[in-house]
């Protein structure tokens, strides 16, 4: 149904999304796509409505309007846990993992939705340790005692354990040291080359653009800029969009 002439169908397709908290609407009419093997970066200042959009896709905020399709299937009516089961991987803001549980328990919980049994989950932990070698020796450490960067790795690893089709990351760079941000972005790059579709919500433009194929910029709940990274001449245009210097442009 999408009008864009793309090589493959989008794995995540959001159209005319309206959402908010309770009766407070924060996001009006937001549309974008995430293609397999690509990263779509959802950018914007603090409070622009990026996280709210992500939460609405995950089913945590009520949808006041619009559609959300995952691999062609409309998931807007599904309960949150069913969206996860349907192939949505979510890494929430602020490294939201289970800090009182061990690293291993956290990762295994990530595979809960597969219902394959404890033993099998344990065997598949290796894939995560390969992506994040730093976690390998910390399996029985309480997750809350890890460094910020390692907690972020646990959070991403957790989402990957559920074998998602689309991975959504909410501000993975927030509060991390620059070197760690680089490491996180490198792992995102690896994931996209494995064919995963990634939605990257970020405040940090340059880090995000370094891995993104497509950017969508939000301000005060609306799309103010939208286009492929390859067409960006420099980042000033995003800066302008951030500070409200461009006239809002409706999403195509």
């Amino acid at each position: 149904m999408t009008e864009q002439p793309v090589s493959s169908e989008p794995l995540l397709s959001v159209r005319n999304l309206v959402t908010g908290y309770g009766d407070l609407r924060v996001v009006w009419d937001v549309s974008f796509d995430v293609l397999p093997g690509q990263v779509t970066a959802l950018l914007g200042r603090n409070g622009a409505g990026k996280s709210t959009t992500l939460r609405a896709i995950a089913g945590l905020n009520k949808l006041h309007g619009g559609t959300v399709r995952l691999a062609g299937e409309d998931i807007a009516g599904l309960a949150s846990h069913k969206r996860i089961k349907a192939g949505l991987g979510v890494v929430q803001e602020n490294k939201r993992i289970f800090k009182r549980r061990t690293v291993e328990a956290n990762l295994m919980l990530g595979g809960y939705s597969l219902h394959v049994g404890r033993r099998k989950l344990k065997d598949s932990l290796d894939e995560i340790y390969e992506l994040f070698p730093a976690l390998r020796g910390r399996a029985s450490t309480q997750a809350g005692q890890l460094s910020g960067g390692q907690q972020q790795m646990v959070a991403i690893g957790q989402a990957l354990m559920g074998h998602p089709k689309v991975l959504m990351l909410d501000e993975p760079s927030a509060g991390l040291a620059p070197a760690i941000v680089l490491e996180v972005m490198e792992s995102v790059d690896k994931l996209k080359s494995s064919g995963l579709a990634v939605l990257l919500v970020e405040q940090a433009v340059e880090a995000a653009v370094s891995v993104a194929d497509h950017v969508t910029v939000l301000d005060i709940g609306r799309v103010v800029m939208d286009g492929p990274v390859s067409e960006l001449d420099d980042l000033d245009i995003i800066k302008d969009a951030y500070f409200g210097r461009t006239a809002p442009r409706p999403a195509s």
């Binding site: 940090a204 433009v205 951030y242």
Partner: peptide, 11 residues
């Protein structure tokens, strides 16, 4: 804008 990432240039 998150330009505090020094390595971002290379990326």
């Amino acid at each position: 804008l998150g330009m505090k990432v020094p390595a971002a240039d290379s990326l």
